[in-house]
Nucleic acid binder design. Structure first.
Lengths: 204, 204
DNA sequence: CATTTATGTCAGTCTTGTTGACATATCTCA
DNA sequence: TGAGATATGTCAACAAGACTGACATAAATG
C-alpha cells in the first residue's frame, strides 16, 4: 500500500470528533457574507465548482493507471489523444490545442516517436510542417485510453439519464472561454484544427 | 510576449495546408473501427471527453492568474478552498479530499500558515487533531478565487440557460467514482466531511 | 503500558510545466 | 534572387507539485 492512502481505511474520515467544528473565523453552509450593499451579488456556485474538481479528478485517474504501465504520463496522453483524433496534425496546431511551450511538447513527443507510438512525415505543400499520425500501436493505446474515459461517460449517462448528454455538452462548452468556443466546437466536430471546414476524410 | 504564445497571432492556426490531411494510418470523424464482431460497442463520447478537457483548462486558468500574484499555485488554491468551505477541517480529512500525500500537503500548507492565510488550532476532544481555519486574509483570498470561478459558472449558465444548472450538476456527480458520490454530495451540501450529518453551524 | 492514530519532517526522485537562447530548413514577398 | 518571416528542433536551467521511504513525536485507546 502506498503512502498516498493513509493509515485510515475509510474513504471518508471516520473520526467522530464532535468538537471539531467550533470554528474560529467560522462560517458555513449557505451564508455567503455580504459583498457590498445594494447588489446582493449572488454567491458563487460552489456546487458546480466542486463537482468539476471531483469529476475531473476521477476522470483522469482511469487513464493515469493505464499510462503508468507504459511509463507515460498525462502529457503523453493529451498528445496521443489529439494526434489520434486528428491525423496529420502539425506541431503548431498541437501547441495551440495544448497551450504549452514547444519545449514541453517536444519532450513528450520525442518519447512517443522514439517508442513508436507516433510517426512524423514532412508536409508536401509546406515542407516545414511535420505531420503527426499515430502508428497502429499509438492508435491502439489512444483508443484504449479513450475507451476508459468513454466508459465513464457512458456509465454516467446511463445512470443519470441519457437525456443529460446534450445539456452537459452545452454547459461544458459555455464554460470555455468565449473566444475559443468556435474553434473547440470545430475541433470536436472532427474539423480540421487549422481551418473552418469539416474534416476532409482521410484519403484512402 | 512569452514563448508559450508562439509567433503566430491567431488563436487557431491559420496555415491553409491543404495537403496536411493525407494521413498515413488515417481515420477520421465518425468511423470508430470495429471492436469485436457481434457487439457494435458504441464509440466513446469524444465530445464530452474533450469538452471536459477544455472546460477544465479554462476553469483553472482564472485562479492561476490571481494565485501568481501571491506566489501560490493550484495546490495552495485547493487547500485554501476546502479549508474556507469547511472551517475546522483536519489534516486527515483534507488528505482524503485532495488525494495527495501528507508530504505534498504539508509543503503547501506550511506556506499558507507561515504567510498567515491559514491558522491551526489543536482539537479539544482529540488533541492530536489540527483544526484548520482561514484567517481573514485567507478567507478573502479564498473568496476572491471562488469569485472568478463562480463568475465563469454564472456566465456559462446565463449564456447557455439557467435550466442547465441541475442537469450539469447531475452529470458531473455521475462522473464521480460511484463509491465517492455520497461523500462528495455531503461535502458539497456543506456537511461535515468526517460524518454524515449536515454542517453544525459554527458556534458563535 | 503497549499499540494505534494523527501529524510532522528529512531526503531524494519524477513529471511536466516554465524561460531564454540559438540553429536550421523552408516559404514568401519585394 | 535575396531578406525576412515561419515552423520546427534543441540545449540548459529552473520551479511546482506530485511521489517514495524512513523516521519522530504526541496523544488516544485498549
Amino acid at each position: 500500500m502506498t503512502q498516498a492512502a493513509r493509515t485510515r481505511p475509510a474513504p471518508i474520515p471516520d473520526a467522530a470528533n464532535e468538537d471539531a467544528r467550533e470554528a474560529g473565523y467560522a462560517h458555513a453552509g449557505t451564508d455567503q457574507g455580504e459583498p457590498a450593499r445594494g447588489e446582493p451579488a449572488e454567491a458563487p456556485h460552489y456546487d458546480l465548482i466542486e463537482l468539476l474538481f471531483f469529476a475531473y479528478r476521477d476522470f483522469v485517474a482511469d487513464p493515469d493507471r493505464i499510462l503508468a504501465e507504459y511509463g507515460f504520463g498525462r502529457a503523453h496522453h493529451r498528445v496521443l489523444h489529439f494526434v489520434d483524433r486528428h491525423p496529420g496534425l502539425t506541431i503548431a496546431e498541437l501547441l495551440d490545442i495544448l497551450r504549452i511551450t514547444k519545449q514541453s511538447l517536444n519532450r513528450v513527443l520525442k518519447e512517443l516517436i522514439e517508442q513508436g507510438y507516433i510517426a512524423q512525415r514532412t508536409g508536401t505543400s509546406d515542407r516545414r510542417h511535420r505531420l503527426l499520425t499515430c502508428t497502429p500501436e499509438g492508435r491502439a493505446l489512444a483508443q484504449r485510453l479513450a475507451g476508459v474515459q468513454g466508459e465513464r461517460v457512458r456509465r454516467a449517462l446511463a445512470e443519470a439519464g441519457p437525456a443529460l448528454r446534450d445539456p452537459a455538452s452545452r454547459f461544458l462548452l459555455a464554460m470555455i472561454e468565449p473566444g475559443e468556443r468556435a474553434g473547440v466546437s470545430r475541433l470536436i466536430a472532427g474539423g480540421d484544427p487549422a481551418r473552418g471546414d469539416p474534416a476532409p476524410e482521410a484519403t484512402p
